[in-house]
Nucleic acid binder design. Structure first.
Lengths: 140, 140
DNA sequence: ATGACTGCAAAGACTTTGCATCTTT
DNA sequence: AAAGATGCAAAGTCTTTGCAGTCAT
């Protein structure tokens, strides 16, 4: 028997928050963002709802960055860029490794591939600038 | 000033263990594996050496699977398959998304891309079989 | 002898969970 | 009223770290 799902003001607020930002937030970020308007929100509720959204395909995991899982409300296939320095995440919508790739890997290796993640790592423009500044004006 | 590096029996054993398995081990796995021959090994030492290997390019992170970081002693570019069910990891040596991809993304988005990870997810053959068996012979 | 490496245990960080209470239907 | 959702706090995992002792050079 399927579990019934009920409306909840907090759940709606959490999902809206994820959908309303491009930052690919962590649980803690969502919690801090909602705290002012929902002073009685608990971090456990954020985690429970994130699990709920994952199970219902409303959200996907981007990956663990600096120890924290990050989430994305865009569930259509696309790639990501992660800044090694500040941990910011960008969507790369035009870098879709081709859709037949999963099937190709399945056949080639005898696996049941369901999806893949393509993630790029490096420095975002802001962190690149800061590194260059530090080179030009080194500390004593 | 660079820090001097000294030989250590434990360090060598840890690296050899990673290099000697295809399982893309976690820190805990390495620790359990070495315990019989090195009863005084501590998990902290495994973690410290993993950090050392990462910093020296002897090992790379594969990603977090079921809460644990997994490591790979093969540091040349290649893709991975992760079983969603049992967490096993396979190398996919022939699936190298092309080498110019990092540069293409760098130019297209104005980023300083240094590397990327391409990881496939699904069910390994063993877990696929178990799922089918459960369908055919459902529990009461 | 110097300083790098380790064991041990404590601390840290992130996430999950049990239980009583509140909310939705 | 029934059962899902939440708050709170405790517990659980994985990883890092401080310190004293050990080992390599």
């Amino acid at each position: 028997m399927e579990r019934a799902v009920r409306y909840s003001k907090k759940r709606e607020a959490i999902l809206t928050t994820i959908q309303g930002t491009k930052c690919h937030p962590s649980a803690e970020w969502i919690y801090q963002r909602l705290k002012p308007c929902h002073p009685d929100l608990s971090l456990g509720t954020v985690y429970r709802n994130l699990t709920f959204f994952l199970e219902h395909g409303l959200v996907q995991r981007v990956g663990t960055v600096q120890g924290q899982e990050r989430f994305d409300a865009i569930v259509t296939p696309h790639s990501h860029f992660v800044c090694d320095c500040c941990g910011s995440i960008l969507d790369l919508p035009e870098i879709n490794s081709d859709a037949g790739l999963d099937q190709a890997v399945s056949q080639q290796y005898g696996l049941a591939v369901q999806r893949h993640k393509l993630t790029f790592y490096g420095l975002c423009p802001s962190c690149t600038n800061q590194q260059n500044n530090n080179k030009e004006e080194p500390l004593s």
